[in-house]
């Protein structure tokens, strides 16, 4: 095994170009498990810890440019206002120790259907900026996940930034696990209200081969909100409407039975989470509060 330690971004890209099979390692929270348990023996590791840009973030007018290696703990502590859904999701990631080390770039690189950041990114709307010595490109997060643990990156590309739409309305994230902390998602659901465009976006985790949006649910809800004038009136949502949204969200799942949960349960739980998170975000919207909703828990 070789251990490549580029001192900066350009060097990292050059190394990746020269050794496309080199496996990037940043937080190490996925890859080191595979190495420790002898599940994987990459020929080369490409350490990204020394690349300063990856640790930086910047809040712009419409988007947040998030470095691939910004640890979840900092997202929770510093980006709760601009990216409430992602911050909430980051707060559910594994343990405090892991949140100090892991970041969104690694989550995207692994592209597990259970990655906690994915539903929040899908709901917020985001683009993954991948770069290689050939240049850079932005991949919409909706198109990023191409299969179970597969993504749209070319072999010579590295994830540099994730450009995430700044919240213009309330966002939420919920995940089911059979433990009250440090648990991998049985399934997860993210939702973001976008009052600026009068749309609603969602993300479902761990209930299909890839993270997915509940497109039919989003369309239904956007239409229903518009038709009923809810955006303007700020009226409470009728339970039937939330129920229909939940059912459509459940319908977007294509889950499997595995050791963490049954397919039936996953579909059911996604529906419940969809209904609840819609309720929380809508209540928050009615109160005029963008950002976090009523659930608390210190970081």
């Amino acid at each position: 095994m070789d251990f490549l330690r580029p001192a900066g971004w350009a060097e990292a890209l050059a190394a990746k170009a020269e050794h496309p099979a080199a496996v990037p390692i940043a937080g190490g929270t996925d890859l080191m498990v595979e190495i420790n348990f002898d599940h994987r023996r990459p020929e080369r590791l490409l350490d990204l810890n020394r690349v300063a840009e990856l640790q930086e973030w910047e809040v712009g007018a419409d988007t947040v440019r998030l470095g691939a290696s910004v640890p979840y703990a900092r997202i929770v502590a510093e980006l709760g206002g601009a990216l409430p859904g992602l911050a909430r999701a980051a707060h559910t990631v594994a343990s405090p120790q892991i949140r100090n080390r892991g970041g969104v770039g690694g989550n995207l690189g692994t592209a597990s259907p259970a990655g906690d950041a994915h539903p929040a990114l899908l709901a917020a709307g985001a683009e993954v900026e991948a770069e290689s010595v050939r240049g850079s490109r932005r991949i919409p997060v909706d198109e990023f996940f191409t299969g179970v643990k597969r993504n749209a990156l070319a072999p010579d590309e590295l994830i540099k930034w994730v450009h995430i739409k700044r919240a213009t309305g309330p966002q939420e994230f919920a995940k089911v696990g059979t433990r009250n902390a440090m648990v991998i998602a049985v399934c997860a659901f993210g939702i973001a209200l976008h009052p600026d465009t009068r749309t609603v976006r969602t993300g479902i985790g761990s209930a299909a081969p890839t993270p997915v949006r509940a497109a039919a649910a989003e369309e239904f809800l956007a239409a229903a909100l518009a038709e009923g004038g809810f955006w303007d009136s700020g009226r409470a949502l009728p339970p039937a409407l939330a129920g229909q949204f939940a059912e459509l969200a459940a319908g977007a799942c294509n889950p499997v039975d595995d050791v963490r949960g049954s397919a039936r349960y996953r579909r059911h739980a996604v529906g419940v989470m969809a209904r609840r998170t819609l309720g929380w975000t809508w209540e928050s919207y009615r109160r005029g509060a963008a950002g976090s909703t009523s659930g608390e828990g210190a970081a």
Partner: peptide, 21 residues
């Protein structure tokens, strides 16, 4: 990274030493 028994500070920040190459 599922038990914390290897927790050390790395540049001041608690991390699982088993997951740091």
């Amino acid at each position: 990274g599922e038990c914390g028994s290897c927790t050390v500070r790395l540049d001041g920040v608690p991390v699982c030493a088993c997951l740091v190459a």
